[in-house]
Amino acid sequence: MVKVTMTVNGRTASGEVEGRTLLSGFLREELGLTGTHVGCDTSQCGACVVHVDGKAVKSCTMLAAEADGAEIATIEGQAAPDGTLNVIQQAFQDHHGLQCGFCTPGMVMSAAALLKDNPKPSEQEIREYLEGNLCRCTGYHNIVKAIMAASGQDVSAVAAE
């Protein structure tokens, strides 16, 4: 067993984990942060994306032990304490960027990482950045649109209104 301590959404969290415990498992099972989802076992779907020390990471493909001492941000920490959605979350709601909601936490966390590095990404840059985030419901149309809108771009010209 390995003792780990990390900061999750600003709070210190500690626990004893097995070597094989994944970060996604630690978040979901130990901390009860079930917003981080697991949708595949080949590191492709991205439903599990969280931020580790500010960088987007697939939490199902990182050992919890590797996150010892790290700052973790998950979907549960994205809205303001009073529940106000952040700009990306709000854009997803405004533009119907989610349906079943299962991929959504990973999408929002990936979008946040993208906008941090690239505050006004083009449509193509957004699509390429989402290579590691699968959505089966939306055909991606409204996800891309929502991320463009979250970055302050005018999406009124985007088709299908």
Binding site: Q44, E123, Q124, R127, L130, E131, Y140, H141, V144, A160
Partner: peptide
Amino acid sequence: MPRADDLPFY
């Protein structure tokens, strides 16, 4: 699986 960059705006 279809990814975002496989698809256009519709």
